[in-house]
């Protein structure tokens, strides 16, 4: 579409098909060798570029932090991303549920990394609202929701809960890098990464930084209505572009059972067939559907595990089935 649309002003802009950050800046001259190239600043294309000198001087080669991250991540067996194009579909709730379910097995060590920098919900959901993190010579120690459940989030670092983190991309990327590089995760069987909505800096960074260590898969969360599915399609497109295996889709808030009359109704109407139809269309597994249970929200606000509090809820059953399926897909069961 865009290729045919002449741009009214000279802002460098094209719908991105180059995904993982290349090292060629948007406004670079044609044939720029890339800032990390050994030829940076030295080719004929660099002549006249205002950054020629800087490029010629700077350190070359790939990001020196990547091997450090790889070494740190060697003690983590499985790395799972929880993604969704749309906000408020239940990524954090699902992340928390997945982690609580995994940690119910005392043999397993589980970690949650919250890379939602501007709206971290994980501390509240895990009952760690007032926790802070400790720094030691070997790095930051995560907070613990229970003995085998480590949690890391920017929420632990804010002086006050209501402080807004007004950061542009590069600063967020720096913190994510530190979460991977400097946090003493220890031996983990699972690291579940909760992400913000969308497909932007945080997502690119986590993929880029874990490129060497490897991501085992992504779980996509959606709600049944088309507006949400539309954004999930974008997220699937993103996963395919950057090469993250998709474990499957979870349809959250799928139907509501009225507590007084037990009548079932659809709050978010699956006018286009919901996640089921989309999963089929795109050849992705539907891991399960989680019905809305008003008690989920209540336990979340209290930082308790919904699965422990209401084991009889249909939502709990759905959650546990999904967690089993994820473990099977990862080859752990």
């Amino acid at each position: 579409m865009l290729a045919t649309l002449p741009l009214p002003s000279p802002v460098p802009f094209a719908v991105s098909s180059e995904i993982l950050p290349t090292t060629v800046p948007d406004n670079a001259p044609e044939h720029c060798p890339g800032t990390e190239s050994t030829l940076a600043g030295k080719t004929s294309a660099c002549d006249g570029c205002p950054n020629q000198e800087t490029c010629a001087e700077g350190p070359k080669g790939p990001d020196p932090d990547l091997p450090v991250i790889k070494a740190r991540m060697e003690s983590v067996k499985r790395k799972v991303l929880v993604l969704s194009g749309k906000g408020g579909v239940g990524k954090s709730t699902f992340t928390a549920g997945l982690a609580w379910a995994l940690a119910a097995d005392e043999e397993l060590q589980t970690g949650i990394m919250d890379v939602d920098i501007c709206g971290p919900s994980i501390p509240l959901l895990m009952g760690l609202e007032n926790s802070t993190i400790h720094t030691s010579a070997s790095g930051w120690s995560p907070a613990y929701a229970q003995d085998n459940l480590a949690v890391m989030s920017i929420g632990f670092m804010l002086p006050r809960k209501s402080d807004a983190v007004i950061w542009r991309g590069p600063k967020k990327n720096g913190l994510i890098k530190q979460f991977l590089k400097d946090v003493e995760w220890g031996d983990l069987d699972y690291l579940v990464v909760d992400t913000p909505p969308g497909t932007s800096d945080e997502h690119l960074s986590i993929v880029q930084y874990l490129k060497e260590a490897g991501i085992d898969g992504a779980v996509l969360i959606t709600t049944p209505q088309e507006v949400a599915l539309q954004d999930v399609r974008k997220e699937i497109d993103f996963c395919r572009k950057v090469g993250i295996p998709i474990l499957g889709i979870v349809e959250n808030m799928s139907g509501f059972v009225c507590p007084s009359c037990k009548g079932e109704s659809e709050i978010f109407i699956p006018s286009t067939g919901g996640a089921q139809a989309m999963a089929q269309e795109l050849g992705i597994e539907l891991l399960g559907k989680v019905p809305l249970d008003p008690r989920i929200g209540m336990t979340c606000d209290k930082g308790l595990s919904f699965l422990d509090e209401y084991p009889e809820s249909p939502a709990t059953v759905a959650y546990l089935d999904i967690v089993d399926r994820i473990r099977t897909l990862l080859g752990d069961e």
Binding site: M1, L2, L5, L7, P8, S9, V11, P12, F13, V15, S16, I19, P21, D26, G85, R168, G169, P170, T199, S200, D201, H203, L204, Q230, R233, K234, E235, I236, D237, F238, K241
Partner: peptide, 23 residues
């Protein structure tokens, strides 16, 4: 409106988004 298909993603980092908003 500028995207080709409804499933294509816009994977932009900050500066590009800023430029688009200015535009």
């Amino acid at each position: 409106f500028l995207l080709g298909s409804r499933s294509s993603s816009v994977v932009w980092r900050g500066p590009k988004k800023t430029a688009m908003i200015r535009q």
